[in-house]
Design a protein around this nucleic acid. Structure first.
Lengths: 345, 345
DNA sequence: CCGAGGAATGTAACCGGTTACATTCGCCGA
DNA sequence: TCGGCGAATGTAACCGGTTACATTCCTCGG
């Protein structure tokens, strides 16, 4: 139907063009989209058909500016590689989408500087809300959030004391529960492999939980029983190797991350150590991966998707002006094939 | 220094506020950020210190509108769970960031409708460039891209014929190479497990490559030798079970995805089939996971990060008005412990 | 001493929408 | 017949920046 116009030179069509062609004012065109009920049906249909004809797509940036609402929510996660964040991020996406928001995803790569940069970018973009991972961040970035009063929620950690609300499970308690599980099976010598506590406050919380419960149960452990490393398969192997090389290796190893746990498991198998007969291994996160290995990995299930969804819910409340009500979610140990009583028990 | 003003009522500070306080025009304030060299140093420093004092953060949306440049690049991937996309996406992020762009990530969840919706959103946001996965998409969405002349690049697939340029490896050839590898080891009965070819044109390309090379080598195969399924561990187990239950199972199984391959491997181990002695398995993507299992998985390495980086490079060229030069990247079979000559060879 | 010319800054239009308020218009009841 | 009222639409300011062009102010050579 439509005669081809010289597409090459065609400037982007605006509501002014539409208004001119329809013989109405820009206000009417605008209303056709924003408040259709306030435009007579005949007018509306005529305008819509002209828009159709020119493939008009309204400029969301201009709209955001005029409405003083960006329509953006942002989330910052440490890594795309660890698929545990996929679950929470996807849940965030879905919940945000349902509420009409677009989600900006920032990946900090465990760097405070990078995270600060992302936060600044997001504030510049005037995100309406922000979902953060952990609570340990650059001072200026934190100030930026507070001063600009960007509604924010902390996830993956219950912050010790924070100006910001949270939706998270309790890393400290979850780690302590793993110690209970292993001690309950009869283990006395339990080692820990966790993330780098200097750049990762979630790892720190897990470590503290482990240490506290070990002490409470009068189970002795020394510096050699605790290893910090990146979330990496090879690191898990190395850590396990380190334990096994000792004169009196632990009978159980708690890896505060499944990838590391699988690395540890692999190393045991390579060295002829039977899991769980000779040594028990417990992971954390309950990634799909935990079920892919043989024997399947005992791990701590974390409510990632639920956390994401609830974080958005809380955030929407904050944006609407409600008071913040932090939420603590439950974790659960999924006992599978890598944890059993110690040898000779 | 600064006297506390009633923070609660404080409206967001704009360049007008800054200009007033500094006794200059808004143009000078704007220039202080956009063209610092065009402002006298004394003036600039005074303005900057006032900005500092009020924690002024320029509004990126207003800036985008005025400059007619959103500063957004967008990428659409099918899933966050498959960590192979993490690598390309991260590379895209880094390259885009380096060029001063912010990346919008869209997850289509293998749905054409969802993808179309994302594309529309991105066009509304006036993204300056778009990185797509595959070439099989909603007609209207495709039209939207073309008519609005959004610079775009297709990744993960070399499109059969497309108006859009691509940066990808060759799924068809890579699958054929796997057949060569297995046939070279002496296998004659080779089965395939691949993704759902109705919603995934990358899976289709792999399947076609498999079929073509099998025929070229005069290796017979029937419908029972090919299974399509989701990228899922359990699906891999089921598929392998299906093959093993037959009277004459294949001696090699090519899984066009590592997750599925690991599922297949797991099922073999569970049923007492030795890999690779009794049966060979080859995966695709060479995820980190491939090295986590025992024996380690033979798989096809795909240049995900390189693809992402080059896609951005091409995109930046397109945005700058250069002609599109599609690029084809190389894949490589990484031979590990799951592929060997068939029994009795 | 004067005018040219460049540096610094100001003026105001503009980006593409939204919306408060004003205006127009038709209909209805008094 | 007329004022009032609500629905439909128009007018124009505004969102918060950018920038072309104009203006002001110096410096300096002739």
């Amino acid at each position: 139907m439509s005669k081809k116009s010289p597409a090459a030179i065609e400037r982007k069509v605006t509501i002014h063009d539409i208004a001119r062609e329809a013989g109405v004012s820009v206000a009417t065109v605008s209303r056709t989209f924003s408040h259709p009920d306030r435009v007579r049906e005949a007018t509306r249909e005529q305008i819509l058909s002209i828009c159709e004809k020119h493939h008009f797509v309204a400029d969301a940036m201009a709209r955001s500016l005029a409405r003083r609402r960006s329509g953006f929510l942002a989330v910052i996660i440490p890594s795309l590689y660890n698929s545990i964040y996929a679950a929470s991020t996807q849940a965030i996406q879905n919940a945000a989408e349902a509420a009409g928001y677009t989600v900006l995803i920032g990946v900090s790569e465990f760097s405070k500087a990078r995270e600060a940069q992302l936060i600044r970018q997001f504030v510049e973009r005037r995100v309406e809300g922000l979902i953060l991972t952990g609570a340990d961040r650059d001072r200026d970035a934190q100030q930026l959030i507070l001063r600009n009063q960007v509604p924010s929620v902390i996830t993956w950690l219950i912050p010790p004391r924070s100006a910001l609300p949270w939706v998270s499970f309790d890393n400290y308690a979850a780690a302590a529960a793993v110690v209970d599980h292993l001690a309950g099976l009869g283990h006395r010598r339990i080692a820990l492999v966790c993330g780098r506590t200097d750049v990762n406050d979630r790892a720190l919380a897990r470590r503290r939980g482990f240490e506290a419960r070990m002490r409470a149960l009068h189970l002795s452990f020394g510096p050699a029983d605790i290893r910090e490393c990146e979330f990496d398969f090879t690191e898990g192997r190395k850590a396990m190797r380190g334990f096994l090389d000792r004169g009196d290796p632990p009978t159980a190893v708690f890896c505060a991350n499944d990838i590391v746990a699988v690395g540890a498991l692999y190393e045991c198998q390579r060295l002829g150590k039977r899991v769980p007969d000779d040594i028990s291994i417990v992971g954390f996160d309950d990634l799909p991966l935990a079920q892919y290995v043989f024997p399947q990995l005992t791990s701590v299930r974390v409510p990632a998707a639920e956390m994401g969804a609830q974080a958005v819910e809380l955030l929407l409340g904050l944006i609407a002006g409600n008071r913040a009500r932090s939420r603590t979610l439950r974790t659960e140990i999924v006992v599978r094939g890598t944890s059993a009583p110690p040898p000779g028990a």
